[in-house]
Design a protein around this nucleic acid. Structure first.
Lengths: 179, 179
DNA sequence: CCATATTTACCGAACGTTCGGTAATTTGAT
DNA sequence: ATCAAATTACCGAACGTTCGGTAAATATGG
């Protein structure tokens, strides 16, 4: 059986975007020939991207959204979630699929997946912020703001090749999000 | 003669990314045949992107950086700059070349241009923040933070197709940046 | 008429995808 | 446990299309 490891494919999409990610790159990344990819993904490139998105979704539910909903203290929950985020983005060295897959005409194919991902993430941050003492409305504002800062930090640190920008934003999250 | 209008090319790059922007798309956008582009841009696709970046740079220097350095009040300066930003990004409906051109392997070609653009922008916001009463160090922090929030808002509002996210961030800029 | 601008026609390479076929593995009946 | 049958995994070669780019021919304006 040996279900294929999706993270090399994820890396290609995150680094190249959807259009920029060629099947040759993907095949080389997973150690298969181009044709063999169609055994694992009969739906072709689009199915590969969808599989990667599902994989990312699972990671986020387990390592970010899950911790944010636990019954520990808001501060502890947020610390765990931040760790999950930091690891996922490799300290800001890896781009975000939300960013990268929302470009060009292929974006339409993934909008539903991406919207759901953003919603789950924002909701979870809203919960931990509210639990720390903020009103529901304020908590939602702060959660949205946090998502924006994370995405912005990823763009800026990538375009300047300075990953400390991302690290700094992550470290400041508790102060921004919690009462 | 009639020097070519670069904004259609800019739009293609911003919507599709560098890899995703094909010469066919660009040719159609400017109303020329593919081959004719090589009369205007002997350097090919890369020269087109560089020309667009130079065009963007000029816009920013005139409509964003310039106003931020004027001798009006910091609040008035910032308002003018925000207008320049809002128009440039069409209320968040258009992506940022800084984001889009820092993806994939072609990113290396544009890193110098992009770094300079970011530096000029950040410096200008630092000036207006310092002039409003903040210390140099704090002003620089806030300027960097503002750039991050703008870039993040562009990503989020694009991926959710909700341009109000971007508008809200722009409107909140004076409160964040000025003392 | 001349030069510049634009076009048509074309190139090799890479694209995503399909297909026929071959190892390798799993299954099922003995 | 054995061995043929069936299934799974993978590959090489080729498909038609589009890519970025070039050369030769035509159109346009001074």
């Amino acid at each position: 059986m040996a279900t294929l490891d999706l993270s090399p494919i994820s890396d290609v999409f995150r680094h190249q975007g959807y259009n920029g990610a060629s099947l040759s790159m993907i095949a080389e990344a997973v150690g298969l020939k181009r044709a063999s990819l169609y055994h694992r993904f009969p739906g072709g490139k689009q199915e590969m991207a969808e599989a990667v998105l599902a994989d990312v979704r699972e990671y986020f539910l387990i390592n970010v959204v899950g911790p944010l909903h636990s019954n520990e203290s808001p501060a502890d929950r947020l610390i765990q979630a931040i760790d999950g985020i930091r690891i996922f983005y490799r300290d800001g060295r890896k781009s975000c699929l939300i960013d990268v897959l929302s470009l060009g005409e292929p974006a339409a194919l993934f909008r539903p997946y991406i919207s759901e991902l953003i919603a789950a993430w924002t909701d979870a941050m809203t919960v931990v912020s509210r639990d720390s003492g903020h009103t529901e409305v304020r908590a939602r504002q702060l959660a949205e703001e946090s998502l924006i800062r994370i995405q912005g930090a990823l763009v800026v640190s990538r375009s300047m090749m300075a990953s400390d920008v991302f690290t700094r934003v992550l470290d400041s999250l508790p102060d921004h999000l919690l009462a």
